[in-house]
C-alpha cells in the first residue's frame, strides 16, 4: 500500500543532508512552510542553499533557520520585505550569499527542472545586469537569454489538503510556488492542514498529483 503520510516532523525531515539545495514555497508568509522550516533547525542540516521568493521576515520560519546559521546562500527574486531583518544583517556581515533571479525566471527554471527540460530562452532580463554574461539569442526579433534548470534536493511545500498518495490542494494565493517546487526536487515534503481519504479530493480538483510528492505531514496551523 502506498502511504506517504508521516506521523512526526522528525520522520518528515529525515535524511536531509548538509549542503542541500532546499526549495521553500511561499510568497511572503502566504504558503510558507513555517513549521517545517523551524523543525529543520532541530534536524540539524547545515550549509544549506535556500530557493524561495523572499528571504524571510521577523524571526520565525525561514528567518529563524537563517538566524541559526544554517543557510549559506539564498536564491530569490526579492529578499527585502518589511521585517527581513535577519537576512539583511547576515548579508551586511557577508555571512550569506545572494543570487537575485527575476520572479518568473525563478519559477520557470524550477519548472524546467521538474519537467526534464534542459533550459529555455526568455526575454526577461535581456539587456540588463541580471542578463549579463548569459548566452543570448534573437528569437522573432527579440533578444532572449538562456536560463538553466534549477533543481532542489528537497522541496518544503505548504499545501491545504493531502491524501496518502500525496495528492495536494492549496488555499487561495498560498498556492504560489508550491506546485512547481513539488515537481522540481528529489524529495518533496508537504505540510498540510487536513488529511483526506483517497478519493475525497475530487480528481478534477487535485492541483499537485501525488507522483510529485514523497511525504505528507499534517501540522496544526502556525501563528
Amino acid at each position: 500500500m502506498i502511504d506517504k503520510r508521516v506521523d512526526t516532523i522528525d520522520a518528515a525531515l529525515s535524511g536531509i543532508e548538509d549542503g542541500s539545495t532546499i526549495l521553500v514555497s511561499g510568497f511572503g508568509n502566504a504558503g510558507s512552510p513555517i513549521r517545517l522550516l523551524e523543525a529543520l533547525i532541530d534536524q540539524g542540516a547545515a550549509n544549506l542553499t535556500i530557493v524561495s521568493n523572499n528571504a524571510g521576515e521577523g524571526e520565525f520560519g525561514l528567518a529563524a533557520l537563517m538566524k541559526a546559521g544554517r543557510v549559506t546562500k539564498v536564491i530569490c527574486s526579492y529578499p527585502r520585505s518589511a521585517g527581513s531583518i535577519i537576512f539583511e544583517e547576515l548579508y551586511d556581515q557577508g555571512k550569506i550569499e545572494l543570487e537575485v533571479v527575476p520572479q518568473g525566471t525563478l519559477s520557470e527554471r524550477m519548472r524546467a527542472a521538474g519537467a526534464g527540460i534542459g533550459g529555455f530562452f526568455t526575454p526577461t532580463s535581456a539587456g540588463t545586469l541580471l542578463g549579463a554574461n548569459k548566452e543570448t539569442r534573437e528569437i522573432e526579433g527579440k533578444l532572449h537569454v538562456l536560463e538553466t534548470p534549477l533543481k532542489g534536493d528537497v522541496a518544503l511545500v505548504k499545501a491545504d489538503a493531502g491524501d496518502r498518495w500525496g495528492n495536494l490542494t492549496y488555499n487561495k494565493s498560498a498556492r504560489n510556488f508550491g506546485p512547481t517546487m513539488a515537481m522540481a526536487a528529489k524529495l518533496t515534503i508537504a505540510e498540510v492542514k487536513t488529511i483526506k481519504e483517497l478519493g475525497e479530493i475530487s480528481p478534477e480538483h487535485v492541483v499537485t498529483p501525488g507522483i510529485f510528492v514523497d511525504r505528507v505531514i499534517k501540522l496544526r496551523e502556525e501563528r
Binding site: 527574486s77 526579492y78 537576512f87 537575485v100 527575476p102 520572479q103 518568473g104 525566471t105 532580463s125 541580471l130
Partner: peptide, 11 residues
Amino acid sequence: SKPPGVGGAMD
C-alpha cells in the same frame, strides 16, 4: 548598501 531585489518587474 542594501541587498538588491527585482521581484516580477523584469517579467
